[in-house]
Simulated assay, not measured.
Amino acid sequence: MVGMFGGTFDPVHNAHLRVALDVVEAGDLERLHLIPCHVPPHRGDPDVTAEHRLAMLKRAAAGEPRFLVDDRELQRDGPSYTVDTLRSLHADAAGVHLVLVVGTDSFLSLPRWHQWRELVEWAHVVVLERPFAVGNMPSTLESWLQGRRAENWTELREAPAGRVLFQPVTPMAVSATDVRARMRAGRSPRYLLPDPVWDYIREHGLYGAGRQVG
């Protein structure tokens, strides 16, 4: 079983990595593709270039052999639609069960995604369930979820696609928005980011961090 975990990773931080590892271990995944998006369809452009975001993600993922940094969305023109990425992954790994990993906020916004109902034709969906992430489920999504919810990873392995599993993960209240705000205010994000990522940010003066020394 192979997973896909996408996002802007602007910048990648420790919570991204911790929940990714939680999913890999819970599902005994062969690998998890970490896929930075090129043009996010549902938010503004990232603060730094794709080249920098990819480089930071590679530094962050180094040392965990089950993490695979995948730049396929950066190679495509136009918006980074998840359904297109799943089709591409499916073509590369025929016969392998795919898992789309999404956060709670992303799951709740699913009805606004491009061709969102087709996602489960290509993969299972695993929702990162954290105690502090709350929200009301849209009625459209609630109806769609009926009959799709899985109770465990065994159920995901028994079907090629189409199920939704809510996976508890380590509660870490870290966000890229907060990390960027700290750096712009001249405060250090150390211990919220992997040290190699923080070193890269300072080296290249990203997010207004050129003046940071700690």
Results as ranks from 00 to 15, higher is better:
Ser188Cys: 10
Gly135Ser: 06
Leu110Tyr: 10
Gly44Trp: 01
Thr8Ala: 07
Val174Ser: 10
Thr49Glu: 15
Pro79His: 12
Val12Pro: 13
Arg76Trp: 11
Met183Gly: 10
Ile201Gly: 02
His114Ile: 08
Ala94Ser: 11
Arg53Gln: 14
Gln212His: 01
Val39Cys: 04
Val197Tyr: 00
Leu17Thr: 11
Arg180Cys: 11
Ala62Asn: 09
Asp199Val: 06
Ser188Val: 07
His97Val: 15
Thr8Arg: 08
Trp113Ala: 11
Glu158Leu: 15
Val48Lys: 15
Leu74Met: 14
Ala150Asp: 06
Asp47Thr: 15
Ile35Cys: 14
Leu68Asp: 04
His124Tyr: 02
Val197Gln: 01
Gly210Pro: 09
Ser143His: 13
Cys37Val: 13
Ala150Pro: 08
Trp116Leu: 05
Gly103Cys: 13
Ala173Asn: 10
Glu25Phe: 12
Thr177Gln: 06
His38Ala: 15
Leu141Phe: 13
Asp77Thr: 14
Arg43Asp: 00
Gly103Trp: 12
Arg18Cys: 12
Pro138Ala: 11
Val127Glu: 03
Glu51Trp: 04
Gly27Phe: 05
Gly208Arg: 07
Arg43Ile: 00
Tyr207Glu: 01
Val127Phe: 08
Pro131Tyr: 10
His114Phe: 11
Asp71Lys: 04
Gln75Cys: 05
Arg211Tyr: 00
Ala15Arg: 01
Thr177Met: 10
Trp144Gly: 06
Gly3Pro: 04
Leu54Ser: 14
Arg148Leu: 12
